[in-house]
């Protein structure tokens, strides 16, 4: 097993914002009193005129960002995903999305990775409530480098974008040269099913830190003679329909894996699409209609079944192996 350096995903957000502020006077970074947590304190220090701490006022932060966007700026709202998507949902729906404003939302500390803070701070529903909004784009990168690329891409992508990233240091499995394009699933390992003639027993679509788990699962499965293609489905909306159709045609089963509720998340989006366009046997890995709790991220991933072994078992089960 290859060893990777572990870096907090939020560092990627902070690094991208530093680059953006250096290059573009229109970029503004807003935070809601968690700048040290989201890494926007780097902007506060380096580019104070690009930074605004809105205090503990998520709704006001999103509304203010909306006005900035109407005035031609490119605002990034930053706080814990659970408060950004949840507390400010109505502002995001009616002001940001209905007006199709160029507002970027950085949802930090998402999933179980916030660990010991417990369930109140663990965003497990944010993808669901963001992806149902018309005009919204939802991106869930897999490591700090991909978070950096996604943040840079979001700045150049028209309209509302919700970026979701975790708190913990996670292995950096991509490198500077790894491609990233909003809306295009990234092939990680195994057969590339978008190429004619390639087939697999299972296709695994994962995002966030679960991409790493999916890659490990595919190695386990390969040792058992099961071929698995792994994709980083970082963009939950708009879905990469081409990649999903190719997988549905060329693999016997599809497994999704995410650090989110099973209901309404990325797996739900894949299921909604494929059940209509190309029905295929599916299994979904995620949190099963439950709040999280305090614990180390590792303990929580074990308890809530977000491990490579859970993904591998789901593939085996679906294949009848």
């Amino acid at each position: 097993m290859k060893e990777y350096k572990a870096v907090p995903m939020r560092d990627g957000y902070g690094n991208a914002l530093l680059k953006l502020c250096a290059a573009d006077p229109k970029v503004m970074v807003l935070d809601a009193d968690v700048a040290k947590s989201t890494r926007t304190d780097w902007i506060k220090k380096e580019y104070p005129d690009h930074f605004l701490d809105m205090g503990i006022s998520e709704q006001d932060m999103v509304g203010t960002a909306s006005g900035m966007a109407l005035g031609g700026l490119i605002p990034f709202c930053s706080t814990y995903g659970v408060f950004l998507a949840g507390r400010a949902w109505d502002q995001i729906r009616t002001t940001v999305c209905y007006n199709n404003l160029n507002v970027k939302l950085g949802g930090a500390h998402a999933g179980l990775s916030v660990g010991r803070d417990g369930a109140t701070h663990q965003a497990l529903e944010d993808v669901a409530i963001m992806r149902v909004l018309p005009n919204m784009t939802v991106v869930v990168p897999c490591d700090s480098l991909e978070t950096e690329k996604a943040t840079l891409a979001a700045a150049a992508y028209p309209g509302p974008v919700y970026l979701r990233f975790g708190r913990e240091a996670v292995p950096v499995i991509t490198d500077e040269d790894t491609e990233f394009e909003i809306g295009r699933a990234r092939h990680v390992s195994g057969p590339e099913l978008r190429n004619a003639g390639e087939i697999a027993d299972a296709a695994i679509f994962a995002n966030g830190p679960m991409v790493r788990e999916a890659a490990i699962a595919a190695e386990k499965l390969a040792a058992e003679g099961i071929t698995a293609a792994v994709y980083d489905l970082h963009t939950v909306k708009p879905l990469d329909e081409e990649a999903l159709l190719a997988a549905a045609e060329s693999a016997k089963v599809i497994v999704t894996a995410e650090e989110h509720q099973l209901a309404g998340g990325m797996g739900g989006a894949v299921s909604e699409f494929l059940s209509v366009r190309h029905p295929v046997l599916m299994r979904m890995i995620g949190v099963d209609d439950s709040f999280g709790e305090s614990g180390s991220p590792d303990q929580l991933y074990d308890k809530y079944g977000l491990r490579a072994e859970n993904i591998a078992a789901a593939a085996r089960g679906a294949l009848g192996r």
């Binding site: 509304g63 909306s66 966007a69 605002p75 002001t95």
Partner: peptide, 22 residues
């Protein structure tokens, strides 16, 4: 700016004011 859900416009106005200032 579209509206209908109350309590959102003043934040938007502030954001425009920030943009004007900038």
């Amino acid at each position: 700016c579209s509206a209908g859900s109350l309590g959102q416009g003043l934040s938007v106005a502030n954001g425009l004011a920030f943009a004007f200032r900038r």
